[in-house]
Every structure is written in C-alpha cells, then in structure tokens.
Amino acid sequence: MIAVIDYGMGNLHSVAKGFAKVGVEARVTSDPRAVVEADGVVLPGVGAFGDAMFNLRHLGMLDAIRRVVKEGRPLLGICLGMQLLFSESEEHGRHVGLHLIPGKVRRFQGDFKIPHMGWNDLTIRRPDHPLVDGVKNGDFVYFVHSYYADPQDPGVVVADTDYHVRVPAIVAKDHVMGMQFHPEKSSDIGLRMLRNFADLCGERVGQA
C-alpha cells in the first residue's frame, strides 16, 4: 500500500485518484504509523512552505518520513511536497525543510508571470531513471508554483523545464524523489510516472 500523507495542505485525494486510475491502492492518512508501515510514501501539497513544515511537525510526521527514508522505501514529493525535501526555503523568510536533498527553494525573480502556471515540456537529464520510463523529451506536464528548487548537486535533476530559468521538474537522490509538477493533472504522461513510482514500491499495477 502507498500512503499519501494528509497534513492539511492541498487536494490530496486527487493524488490517490491518480493512483487508482493505474490500478494502485493509495491511502490518504494523517497517521504516522500508517506511513511507517507503507510500501511507499507520497508527500503532496499546495500552499506555504513554513505552514507545511509546521503541520508535519505537529502531526509527528517528521520522524515517520525520516524512518521511511532510512529504511530505503520510496518517497515521492509532489509540488510543495517536492520543495519540502530540500534543506530550506526563502518563502516568507527562511524556513528549514526536511534536508533529504541538499539545496534551497527560491522564488522566481523577473518581469514575467508568477506563478508559473500551465503546461511545460520536459527535458530528460537522466533517461535511465525508472521514474521516467516511457517518458520522452518534449512531453508536457502541468505546473503551478511560484518557487523552484535549486539543488546543491545538479546530478539529482532527472528532468527539468524552462521558465526563464532552468526549473528542476523531477529530482531523485537514492529512494527520495520529487516532481515539481502535478502528475495527477498531467494526463497520460503524469499517470505513467505515478505507475512507475508504484513499480518502485513493489505495488501491483493494473492497466490505465
């Protein structure tokens, strides 16, 4: 079973429905014990970085997430959830993140539309990564965000996109992975990547 962490940030059930479309059970939970017992864990989210870390801490999720990572089970952050994987964010001050992937979350700067909202094409940097199995350069996915990750090690970037700067769209460090876009809103390509994540978790997968 894949656990989708419910910490009061965003429409988490849409992620669970995305997994259901590919024949995978994903359970939305706010119970740290269910997270620790899961085959894989998804950390989604929409909203402010600082509020998200506060809620995770209040629910006792920080230790559960770190135990999942220590034991080598797959963890996937989506949108805000991906940003939380990094060391810190400059959103409304400085906020410490999970520090599972070293780096900083920065705000877009420039005379262009913020937030970045809409469909953008992917450039695959690590085509051998199982998360992008069946995904091609130029495939489009759906983004909504005002901040982007700036990893210390550019080697963690599996795929990126261009929005006036190169924006890491998919990152991975060992069993810790993140997608800045919303796979559950990204048509067949997004569902394919959810299915790929489920494969990494050892979940039985049906046909989309």
Rank of each mutant, 00 (worst) to 15 (best):
I78P: 12
T29L: 09
K21T: 07
L75K: 05
F19R: 14
D63Q: 07
V69P: 02
G40N: 13
V41D: 03
G18V: 07
E90M: 12
V69H: 05
V36L: 12
E91D: 02
G77W: 10
S89L: 13
F86M: 03
G97N: 13
L62N: 00
V35Q: 13
H99W: 01
V35N: 12
H58D: 10
V35R: 14
A20T: 08
E37M: 12
L56I: 02
A20I: 01
G45N: 04
D39Q: 15
H95I: 03
G47D: 00
G45E: 06
E25N: 10
D63I: 02
E90D: 07
T29S: 13
G81A: 10
Q83G: 05
D51T: 14
G60V: 12
G77E: 13
M82G: 11
M61C: 08
K21Q: 15
G40L: 09
D51N: 15
L76N: 01
L80Y: 04
A20C: 01
A20W: 09
P32F: 10
P44N: 00
K70Y: 07
P32G: 11
G81D: 13
A20N: 11
G60E: 08
F86I: 04
M61L: 10
F49Y: 15
V42M: 03
V36S: 14
S30Y: 03
G77N: 06
F54V: 07
G45R: 03
M61D: 06
L84H: 05
E37L: 12
V22R: 13
K21W: 15
A52T: 12
E88D: 02
E90P: 02
D51L: 11
M53A: 04
R66T: 09
D39W: 06
H92L: 14
H58C: 00
D51Y: 06
H99Y: 01
S87W: 00
L85A: 11
V96T: 10
L80A: 02
R73S: 05
G40P: 06
P44K: 01
R27P: 04
A20G: 14
G72T: 02
F86Y: 13
A26N: 10
D39A: 15
F86V: 03
G23A: 00
G81Y: 05
D31N: 15
V22D: 11
P74R: 13
G18Y: 07
G81N: 12
L62M: 09
G93C: 08
I65S: 11
R94H: 06
D31Y: 07
V46M: 05
L76A: 02
G93S: 09
V96I: 14
E91V: 02
N55V: 00
V96N: 04
G40E: 10
L43T: 13
T29K: 08
S87G: 08
H58Q: 12
P74S: 09
G93R: 11
S30W: 02
R27F: 06
R27G: 04
L59W: 04
A26S: 09
L56T: 00
H58M: 02
Q83C: 05
V36F: 02
K70P: 05
H95C: 10
T29W: 08
L75I: 14
D63N: 09
E71T: 04
S87N: 02
Q83S: 05
E71M: 03
E88K: 15
D51R: 12
V22C: 12
L85T: 10
F86L: 08
V41Y: 03
L84G: 04
K21A: 13
G81F: 07
